[in-house]
Design a protein around this nucleic acid. Structure first.
Length: 255
DNA sequence: ATGTCACCTGGTAGGTGA
């Protein structure tokens, strides 16, 4: 079973690339972030024609998430129960016996901003939600755009990023707290090439210079960990015409 | 600090968010 995550940065713009990528990569399930579509605009017909079921949860202009899968997802939950949130950032469902939580974590803008305080509250709520889901679903993956680079080796120039969001000790502490629940960063279960990132700023030739961060992750539960046979960041999609600023990430699970 | 991209409103440019 192949599971994946991709921040598409507007599904309206990226739909042709998504369909191409589904056809070549053949994931069994994929969580999308930043669809930027209200629910009435979601391109479910095109996605179903490509052989995928879809669950989606969006809003105007910003955020928006979706869960695509070859077989139908069950027990779908939108956003974090009990956490009042105007923003569409989480979609959860069970596919082939695996609980998938697809998340678009708050960016946070700047460390001294209201948005960063919201990011901290949001991550605390996510942790509680993941803990409650883990209590009833041992086979669980939390995947998405975390907007956190867990370690300095996930940052092209750690010194240049000091004081900015995505790399702060406070954000990294939240990543560690998720690990403390028994979640494992799939990417680091394997030998990986150095300087492998999942996001590059559109500005200043970020991708061409590989000035990136690894902020898109697939975390797996203790029960799922021994089943992970690979985790790959698909840089090729960042080289396409009109790319998303994020590359897709996928992990292969044995049966 | 910001060379890009996507979206909105409201208008053929400017603001916001990432």
């Amino acid at each position: 079973m192949k599971i994946a995550t991709w921040n598409v940065n507007s599904l309206a713009v990226r739909l042709p690339q998504l369909l191409e990528w589904l056809a070549t990569t053949q994931p069994d399930a994929v969580c999308l972030q930043e669809t930027k579509l209200t629910d009435d605009k979601f391109p479910h017909a095109e996605i179903e024609a490509a052989g995928y079921r879809a669950e989606w949860f969006g809003q105007k202009t910003y955020n928006g998430v979706a869960l695509l899968s070859k077989t139908v997802a069950s027990d779908v939950v939108k956003n974090i129960p009990g956490f009042d949130d105007e923003q569409a950032r989480v979609i959860t469902g069970t596919v082939n016996g695996v609980r998938l939580i697809g998340a678009y974590v708050v960016n946070g803008q700047a460390l001294d901003s209201d948005k960063f305080a919201y990011k901290m509250r949001w991550l605390a709520a996510l942790r509680n939600f993941v803990a409650s889901e883990l209590a009833v679903h041992s086979n669980l993956a939390l995947l998405g755009d975390f907007n956190i680079a867990p370690e300095d080796r996930d940052v092209h120039d750690p010194a240049a990023w000091v004081g900015q969001v995505l790399v702060s000790p406070e954000e990294r502490a939240h990543f560690v707290a998720l690990q403390a629940l028994g979640l494992h960063d799939s990417f680091r279960l394997f030998e990986q090439p150095p300087k492998t990132y999942s996001w590059w700023d559109y500005r200043m030739l970020g991708f061409q210079k590989n000035k990136g961060l690894r902020i898109d992750h697939i975390m797996v539960s203790d029960a799922l960990k021994p089943r992970v046979t690979a985790c790959v960041i698909d840089r090729a999609m960042r080289k396409k015409e009109k790319p998303s600023d994020h590359a897709p990430v996928w992990a292969e699970l044995s049966d």
